[in-house]
Computed example of a mutant assay.
Amino acid sequence: MVGATGQIGRAAVRALVADGWEVTAVSRRGGRDERWPAEVRSVAVDRNEDGALARALGDGVDVLVDVVAYDAGHGRQLTALADRIGSAVVISSAAVYEDEQGRNFDTQDEPDGFPLYPLPIPETWRTVAPGDTSYGTRKVALERELLAAGDALPTTVLRAAAVHGPYGPGPRELWFVKRALDGRPVRILAEGGRSVFHPVHVDNLAELIRLAAAKPGSRVLNGADPEAPSVAEIGAAVDAVMGVAGETVLFEGPPGKDAVGETPWTTPRPMVCGMTAAERELGYRPVTGYAESLPETVAWLTETVADRDWRDAFPGLAKYGVDFFDYAAEDAWLAARRGV
């Protein structure tokens, strides 16, 4: 497994070992997860170093799981090693989809730029063009390289929705968890709190990886949770886990320039991924639901930010350049709204 010590990799290693696979966990530092059994072999490999991945494969593997492949170059790297790989399972992203107007994740900050997707989005839906200009275009380029190999390297491409669970670099749930920890009594949500950005828990992705490893084929499948809660529903679920009762203030329309009401889920239109194909082709059934999985995530978040600035703890969330916890701006907005 390439990328074994990341958020998805940790869960996938456990699922594969439980299914009887002999797993070699590849990462840049060769680290381990404390929940892995002793028989998991850890190897330090920088895949971008010439020949490093080939050396790690040795005489070959039955299945290569790659959770960090990113672009066409990584696709070509894997197909060049097809004679040593029985089949592959590779993580892509639901960010590859675009709507009938050509709107996609790259246009979402433009006026009326957020896509209007079908509900749910099937895997046959149109995607952005392959390229090297953005996350979505690079992922499509990766997919095209792998799928073009056909039977030479049967590859299951998993288009992951908004990944959640422990060990994430940009955990969206922090938006609610930190407010509860800070004793912040108010949660202000734009778009009427109805925003839906379909999540997928790492254990559900791990289950898809496990099933695809046991049933090789060239295919594209979505990866998403059995439910797609709204941001307001997510807030209520987090509050329930943390035993708090915050006041939720809703307003229509997008967040203002001060970012009040903006969350990591905030979208003007819903994004929901269909899971019918995975159920049909792999016999997939989710192993957890959103609310069911939250206690572990909340406990991990609480521990991680206990004595650290959230930006240092979660650079993947800080990279958006939004102060998600600007309470002074929120107080000013509330005062103006209430005529104080």
Score class of each variant (00 low, 15 high):
103 R>P: 08
23 V>K: 07
249 V>R: 15
88 A>Y: 02
55 R>F: 00
41 R>A: 13
91 I>H: 03
246 G>A: 15
34 E>S: 08
251 F>H: 11
93 S>Q: 09
234 I>F: 02
144 R>P: 00
88 A>N: 12
52 A>M: 05
205 L>A: 04
330 E>L: 15
277 A>R: 15
12 A>P: 03
2 V>C: 15
332 A>G: 09
151 D>E: 15
145 E>Q: 06
197 F>R: 15
265 W>C: 07
151 D>R: 15
299 A>Q: 07
44 A>K: 10
276 T>R: 14
252 E>G: 10
111 P>T: 03
39 E>R: 15
56 A>F: 01
143 E>Y: 00
202 V>H: 08
31 G>V: 00
333 W>L: 01
261 G>L: 12
138 R>Y: 05
193 G>Y: 09
69 A>I: 01
57 L>K: 12
29 R>C: 02
29 R>K: 11
108 Q>S: 12
59 D>L: 14
179 R>N: 10
123 E>S: 13
84 R>K: 15
129 A>V: 03
251 F>G: 09
181 L>E: 09
201 H>Q: 08
41 R>T: 14
102 G>D: 03
261 G>W: 06
298 V>H: 04
273 C>W: 07
242 M>C: 03
80 A>Q: 11
262 E>F: 04
141 A>H: 08
145 E>C: 11
157 V>R: 05
186 V>D: 13
4 A>L: 05
317 L>M: 12
136 G>L: 01
145 E>D: 12
49 E>W: 00
29 R>M: 09
10 R>N: 10
23 V>C: 09
130 P>E: 04
324 F>K: 08
142 L>P: 08
9 G>M: 13
165 G>D: 01
310 W>R: 09
293 S>R: 00
231 V>D: 00
291 A>C: 09
205 L>H: 07
335 A>L: 07
105 F>I: 04
339 G>L: 05
244 V>G: 06
298 V>S: 13
159 R>A: 01
294 L>Q: 11
310 W>M: 08
110 E>N: 11
265 W>F: 06
291 A>Q: 05
5 T>Y: 12
298 V>D: 11
28 R>N: 04
7 Q>N: 10
84 R>C: 07
150 G>S: 12
17 V>L: 05
151 D>H: 13
10 R>V: 11
146 L>H: 15
106 D>C: 01
303 E>I: 08
39 E>S: 15
98 E>W: 02
230 S>Q: 08
308 R>M: 14
144 R>E: 06
109 D>T: 12
215 K>E: 12
24 T>C: 09
133 T>Y: 12
180 A>Q: 03
225 D>L: 05
279 E>S: 14
5 T>N: 06
212 A>G: 12
153 L>Y: 01
159 R>P: 03
53 L>I: 01
231 V>C: 04
40 V>D: 08
44 A>W: 04
248 T>Q: 10
56 A>W: 07
50 D>K: 11
328 A>I: 09
180 A>M: 04
79 T>W: 06
319 K>R: 14
129 A>H: 00
249 V>H: 12
123 E>T: 13
8 I>F: 13
294 L>N: 00
128 V>Y: 01
178 K>D: 06
48 N>S: 10
28 R>Y: 02
176 F>E: 04
217 G>M: 09
121 I>H: 07
141 A>D: 02
289 G>H: 07
93 S>Y: 04
75 G>V: 11
93 S>P: 04
279 E>R: 15
271 M>H: 04
322 V>Y: 02
265 W>I: 05
77 Q>S: 13
71 D>C: 10
275 M>F: 04
